[in-house]
Design a protein around this nucleic acid. Sequence first.
DNA 1: TCAGGCTATGAAAACGTTCCCAGGAACTTT
DNA 2: AAAGTTCCTGGGAACGTTTTCATAGCCTGA
Lengths: 327, 327
Amino acid sequence: MTVTIREVAEAAGVSVSTVSRAFTAPDQVKPLTLKRVLEAATALGYAANPAARSLRGGGTGTLGLIIPDIANPFFPPIIKAMQARARRLGYTVLMADCDEQEADEIETIASVSKRVDGLVLWASTLSETRLRELAGRIPIVVVNRDVPEVSEVRISLAAGISQAAEHLRAYGHRKCVFINASRPELARGKSIHDSFEAAGLALTEIGPYEPRFETGVHAAPLILAHNATAVLAHNDLVALGVLHQLANLGASVPGDVSVIGIDDTLLASVSTPSLTTIRISPDELAVRSVELLTEAITGRDDDVPARVVEVGSRLVPRASTGPAPNR
Amino acid sequence: MTVTIREVAEAAGVSVSTVSRAFTAPDQVKPLTLKRVLEAATALGYAANPAARSLRGGGTGTLGLIIPDIANPFFPPIIKAMQARARRLGYTVLMADCDEQEADEIETIASVSKRVDGLVLWASTLSETRLRELAGRIPIVVVNRDVPEVSEVRISLAAGISQAAEHLRAYGHRKCVFINASRPELARGKSIHDSFEAAGLALTEIGPYEPRFETGVHAAPLILAHNATAVLAHNDLVALGVLHQLANLGASVPGDVSVIGIDDTLLASVSTPSLTTIRISPDELAVRSVELLTEAITGRDDDVPARVVEVGSRLVPRASTGPAPNR
DNA sequence: TCAGGCTATGAAAACGTTCCCAGGAACTTT
DNA sequence: AAAGTTCCTGGGAACGTTTTCATAGCCTGA
């Protein structure tokens, strides 16, 4: 039924060793022989059995990707980019969603870790102890978790935030509301308050709430009550909630209030008005995490030190921000 | 380093056969022995090696899912639901995006097919011949492709469409525009024109275009030019383009024009106004396709006949539809 | 011409399971 | 008490690769 290396060997009149070498180390076999083997292989439609290969010890050729929630529109472009990148390096990506539940994450990791050569853990809910222990068993890269001795891709919103502050200042805004729902990358380094103050903007924080559309809906009247003319929302989804409710309240965007989101998801580009937002490049995120992971996998035994790379952000100005109203 | 069945056997004082049975056929081993084995296994942190297992012939425990584009917000909820469903049946899901390119799809299938027990192909770009040939090698389920002798999950928009027509009629609309971008499920059965005519609505079709936001933007003025008071868009994304441009043109929704999307993606629920749309249940889609696939896998040798199941649709009324303006 | 060093190939072990085949023990049944 | 069942367990082959080791042929240089 399924064609094995043995049949190829027979067809080409060589031993199985030679066939194996023809695929894994072509330079070790005489050109003429190589040609015969390859021809026989294609004629028979041979493809190596990954199970046998990985059983023998050659790794699985698969990278695991653990994501808290695929339904969050932030992730699909990243997954896509990681797949593309991994494929170019000869890897397959095994993606698993674990619903932001720690129990699910543990179970998922357990079932997946034997099928992959390494794991990228996005915003893991696991404790630091657990993560280090896991790192001892299998190469891992964490995104947006700060664990000593574990390779990490760190998102920095600093640039985007200060561009946003500058953008609003230039438009003459003075009071701004920040709708907080806990982003780990905002807890690091220079605080968002400092950035806004540096631009001469008063920043009122509300929350922390859950990062949902309804949070934005709920926050909209509070913005008006604070006499603020600008809002920075936890992410695009929350910003859309704000947009929605401001419209219901008869406030115009950006006429009365300017709104800024974070993530630059599909939502931002298709809303009305289109949403000014802070973009974190999915491609860069993908490239970096795959890079770190493959590095950790290849240098497994001569243990390479854990690395931390930072991925920056940029403001994407669109139609939801404009001059502050003069009162 | 990694703990094998042999070490568990040693620790429990039994043979490897017994340990194997303890996991694959627990009722064939004496309760006392079973307990000893299980205890030894957990104490050592044993987990079966999937490579060895599948090499031996027991399948891979993985289902493959080939998707044209994860960035399309229609898919993430489906992927999520499939994973959840598959997990309950003891399967892992290997999802691959192939960018709507036939070449990518072929390559992806080739690299994935040896790692999975079966494949769900969503809106495959492959020819019928190729699909049948593939079906001969590995169990497959196609979604939204009509291939004789291959199991299929078929999306039916009939119910949703006729509900939409009825909904618009009840609101007093008489003229409607349909923005077409080629959905295979609309080409089947009773045509959309018939459904609308049955409700006494005149339907003008424009397109077919690409299913993009800009298509909706482009279509908006045409709707007004046609003096239509309602639009049915190819999907939510296109509908959002319509919403966007109607706002720019000073037309109110639903005051001047009612807009209906298809898919009920995240986009529909977070737009302003929220979008009336036709929902296709992701859970049902997931459950059905997993069901068909596992059926095909289990009954592999006593070849079960190909099955076709249909998944229906429903109108989700929201704020983008309302009474027709009286002129 | 011969020692030594390449190069190309083959034989065979090993990876961790599962499962068929046997065989022993403990019961029934006659 | 012998024969037949049933239940439980162990031995060992097999799955398809990769890779180590060995070998045979060829070439190089003295």
